[in-house]
Design a protein around this nucleic acid. Structure first.
Lengths: 340, 340
DNA sequence: CTTTCAGTTGGAAGCGTTTCCAATTCCCTG
DNA sequence: CAGGGAATTGGAAACGCTTCCAACTGAAAG
């Protein structure tokens, strides 16, 4: 393969100068820079980041750890991060934890320790003490998305706030019989996010003087299918039905809509539904939601990390709150029955 | 950081021996092997694959190139490949081409050439001559999933066959007025898959003596939303409505179901719908489909590549046909009107 | 016309492994 | 007990870069 030595030879320069010219670091005369570039282009030379990383310690590679690759939020973060990294010339190593504990273990105890990545993005991971330590042991900048990561920088949305906002949207329309589909508390790969959103829901309800009925709070695993089942139960078993449902994610809102249709309930006439996310399907389904710009969160994480990398790998733990945006579509409306 | 030298010192062995002991290659006495292992474990030593790759040429990293991270099929392939790689101790570098031509270009002209990957999996990519050349220029094993990749090994399903199978399922139920939602031919990131599936559809129709009505063949971009729009047009504009729809993917089948519901059409009473994929949502929606085990295809691709890697990076171009499986659920039934 | 200094340049020492090669040890043969 | 081959070991040379350092250049300053 053609190496930097070949380029140097062709350009009539030393290896050192070519390296400086190509990397843009250090002083090189414009002429030499141009000759180096030209020679590299002619030879189709591409730097080997492997070798480069050995010498410089920079791998030009960022690790992205996600609990799953199927849930919409994670795909969106991947997409946003991937594009931002591509643009910066960085590779993206994907660690899909999945449900297998052995996989999870090896990601934290082998893969991440191989000094292959300059930085790590951890998405919606509820980490154990040991895992956090492993992460910090890498001595690399880390940013967490979707919840707090002790000692790391974090990008998050105001979960309590948006839950309140969503609930208030329903309350504002005149609903008082509002159900909530939350996440499983035990779903240990997620931050305490279910609880937080649920807290916002309850707070808004209380503030409005609406009773929170325990039987109208059901939980699911954040998937369409799980919420579909939960919503069926909610809608079937109630002696009295809620007139609105606030789901903790769009996928669960979609599951709710599907379940409602099974019962012949019209959306929004018989049931209003609101979610959180900004899922692509929301458009088709007319789902009212709170858009949290997951793609943007992924991109922001990358920008944060690249900043830290060029800053000598130091990243002050910080907390960035990402803006959200209520998108009103056709799944929410004034309840048919006169409000209390 | 602790390096192999530290391990060697601690174990009272030479660096060379420790390297052999840890990698399992070359002859090492059981005693030395054990001492090396122990010392490595005690020090929490993890091999740097960067350095390792410089010396050995093996990166322990596989590149996965996908057109998008959102469409179900791609996520599923990623999931399957990711798990298989994790198990083998390999990293997965994800290249999400996306819609940006510049990104696409840099993936093929920069990223893949950096000698960072031992092998490449390319999913559903319709590649240009130049791109194929770049790929082969890497001189690494390549496997394509979802369609032919000139000169590379391929994992695919029998697209014509399953399209026939799907169509025959509808025909067998008594349908004759069958519409088809195909992919955009011009959708250049996909193989000629839309055409192939459409061909199978037409063949089955012809064989059954059913006319193929051009106005009942509409195309979309393989997404739920796109198919939703296409199906709305199909269902709205027809002076006569089809009694069944065969969609070239589950996501498009789902879009069709959503559109049908907008028109008050009951599934399957008024409209039967069948798709192809094995999408998770199929279960909730009762979607009849042909499961193509995308996860399995991803895993198989990995196994194929790992085989090639241990075989000196040579991979005979071959063609593996992955099995598919008709899953009959509730979205297809005998048409209400008496069949012709 | 020296001196000085910033801007350029090349040599060479690593970076952390693998692997070739030669040396050593050990266990069998004869 | 010498000789031979296999198994085991360590030294050292790569692998393809970056970067420290010293040497050199030229122009501005004195």
């Amino acid at each position: 393969m053609t190496g930097i030595k070949d380029v140097a030879e062709r350009a009539g320069l030393s290896v050192a100068t070519v390296s400086r010219a190509l990397s843009g670091k250090g002083n090189v005369s414009p002429g030499s820079r141009e000759r180096a570039r030209a020679a590299a282009a002619e030879l189709g030379f591409v730097l080997s980041y492997h070798a480069s990383s050995l010498a410089s310690g920079r791998t030009h590679n960022v690790g992205l750890v996600v609990p799953s690759v199927h849930r919409w939020f994670f795909s969106a973060v991947i997409e946003g991060a991937s594009a931002a990294l591509l643009e910066a010339g960085y590779d993206l190593t994907l660690y899909n934890i999945g449900e297998n504990p052995a996989h999870r273990h090896s990601v934290f105890n082998d893969f991440l320790l191989r000094k292959r990545v300059d930085a790590v993005i951890a998405v919606s991971l509820e980490l154990s003490e040991a895992e956090i330590q492993q992460l910090h042991a890498m001595n690399r900048p880390i940013v967490g998305i979707g919840g707090p990561l002790p000692g790391a920088s974090t990008i998050r949305i105001d979960d309590t706030g948006i839950a309140r906002k969503a609930t208030n949207h329903l309350l504002g329309l005149g609903h008082s019989k509002i159900a909530h589909i939350t996440g499983h508390e035990a779903y240990d790969q997620d931050f305490h996010l279910p609880g937080t959103r649920r807290g916002g829901f309850e707070k808004a309800m209380n503030d409005a003087g609406c009773p929170v009925r325990p039987e109208w709070i059901v939980s699911a695993d954040f998937t369409v299918e799980g919420a579909y089942r939960a919503a069926r139960q909610l809608l079937a078993s109630a002696p009295e039905r809620p007139t609105a449902v606030f789901a903790a994610s769009d996928e669960m809102a979609i599951g709710t809509i599907l379940a409602a249709r099974d019962f012949g309930l019209r959306i929004p006439d018989d049931l209003s539904v609101i979610g959180i996310d900004g899922h692509d399907l929301g458009n088709v389904l007319g789902l009212t939601t709170i858009d949290q710009d997951a793609k943007g969160q992924g991109a922001l994480a990358v920008r944060t990390l690249l900043g830290a990398i060029s800053n000598g790998l130091v990243l002050e733990p910080a907390d960035a709150e990402h803006p959200t945006n209520l998108v009103v579509r056709t799944s929410t409306a004034v309840p048919k029955e006169s409000p209390s």
